[in-house]
Design a protein around this nucleic acid. Structure first.
Lengths: 283, 283
DNA sequence: CGTCAGGTGAAACGTCTGTTCCGGACCCGG
DNA sequence: CCGGGTCCGGAACAGACGTTTCACCTGACG
């Protein structure tokens, strides 16, 4: 990609050599770029209190062939800003894996948690806190995250299990868990057949399914009662589940808050057991 | 602000009632919203591999009068997203837990990865890539992260195991692994005695230990050849291992890069096996 | 006062857009 | 094999768009 100056730079450079009408246009462009990105010549002209012709002349003065090119440049800038970090990385950072991952992983966490809406969160926490049985089922790549969700929840309440083992074992467990259970299903694109199918069957049987997946169009989301969309971009070869883990943490935290009274007793008991067995070293 | 459903919600609501062509349009809309915000019917149609008419039909199916209204809705969403995150959080009145976690988890990732110095990283990757045997041992709370590290590495090379099970089983495995092995030990404050002691004993036996822990003063770091310090702050009651997982991802990525030639063959073989068994659904 | 250069907006032009309509392809139950 | 429905893309149409042109205004200068 050629090294071209940003629109803001171009505007700044011309700022003092502009006739009054075009100067007002410049201010509009800097102050509300979405007006030029999404709008039309007429709209920008209206905001600047001038006519379309001045807007076009302003664009050409910046060096663009016309307004359309200026608009395209602003759109590219905005587009870059909201593209996932993975695609930004390629241009910015060098071959430093750590630096690249830093950007990507931060982006994963931000996107994943920003996408959590209040209603879904409350609904999910409600299920996790009140259902007599909570099952966690995760694809192979996400098994670790699933385990951490399950173990976190298990410290807060009874009746939490992670589903693993053979297909038939999972099927049996799901068949016998009763309709009052909740199932958290975690899987990403290239969905694993067993996860998708067991989740669907459970939903049919009346189990409340919470889907943690990578798209609203995922087959997991299809029958789910609550769906969370996570960002799993990676600087490497495999998907990153950092965002997913962050989401699981929030769910555990929310559940802990909901169960405050009973959970603290439980945690105290666990703590006492640890102390008694001397399993911990304070270091 | 009026209470109107987001475009994503509208898409989800229709997800099961979409014909194939419109479904492809839906994927484009969700995956690259800038195409609909900045682009035209023809552009979206091209990306979805269909015709303009299907794009318009899709928009009307969501409840919009036409494509233009869908475009306007997406533009509004992007416009909001362009504002600084601080304002957004206030506007959403999202649950405090989520907002707070966002900050904390981002911080964890940043601190953890920023603390990785090049020499340690290279040394660790070298161990993970070249040692004939790699063992992963994690405290209970970190077991999931350990599992993800182990499974990531196992996709790249032979001889990767996660140590679990009873104390004696772990002891036996460590005793028989030979001095050429590498051991990744993951544990945080309130260190678990078995992790600390097994790691120490392994180090004495000549195993190269990579410690992933929360302080340079940790007992794990004491005998380790390479130590990574992670940030595990949390907005809730338990430690967050988001930063730890990010670190593990980087280690896997680094190892993959080092093993590029052999690893790609291996991944191809895995892929072929998946295809052959039909274990994956593309959704 | 006359001339000229630059700034400006209204209007005309051609292009491209979104929308609608229609005919054909396809699937399914009879 | 045959109707009914759905799905889909090409083409036609009306409208909106960016661009260009041109006439008017203003201020400076000789």
């Amino acid at each position: 990609m050629s090294e071209e100056a940003s629109v803001e730079e171009l505007v700044e450079r011309q700022r003092n050599h502009l006739p009054p009408a075009e100067r007002r246009v410049a201010e509009v462009v800097l102050r509300s770029p979405e007006a030029v990105a999404f709008g039309t010549v007429a709209r920008v002209a209206e905001l600047a209190g001038t006519s379309g012709a001045s807007v076009v002349r302003f664009a050409t003065r910046l060096g663009f062939p016309g307004f359309s090119s200026l608009q395209a440049a602003v759109q590219r800038a905005i587009g870059q800003q909201l593209r996932p970090a993975v695609e930004r990385i390629r241009a910015d950072t060098g071959p430093d894996v750590v630096a690249a991952s830093l950007q990507v992983e931060v982006d994963n966490v931000q996107r994943t948690l920003a996408a959590v809406d209040t209603a879904s969160f409350e609904a999910a926490v409600d299920l996790l806190a009140t259902r007599p049985r909570v099952l966690v089922m995760a694809g192979e790549a996400e098994a670790g995250v699933g385990a951490m969700l399950a173990s976190g929840l298990a410290l807060l309440r009874d009746g939490v299990e992670q589903l693993r083992g053979s297909d038939v074992a999972v099927a049996r467990r799901l068949a016998t868990c009763g309709a009052g259970a909740a199932l958290v299903a975690i899987d990403m694109r290239r969905y694993e057949r067993w996860v998708v199918e067991h989740a669907a069957r459970a939903a049919d049987a009346g189990v409340a399914v919470v889907a943690v997946t990578d798209s609203l169009l995922s087959p997991l989301a299809e029958r789910a009662q609550v769906t969370f969309v996570v960002s799993a971009e990676s600087a490497g070869v495999f998907d990153s589940h950092v965002g997913t883990l962050a989401l699981c943490n929030v769910l555990v935290t929310g559940t802990a808050r909901r169960l405050r009274r009973s959970a603290t007793d439980r945690l105290d008991a666990v703590e006492a057991a640890w102390q008694a067995t001397g399993a911990l070293v304070d270091g």
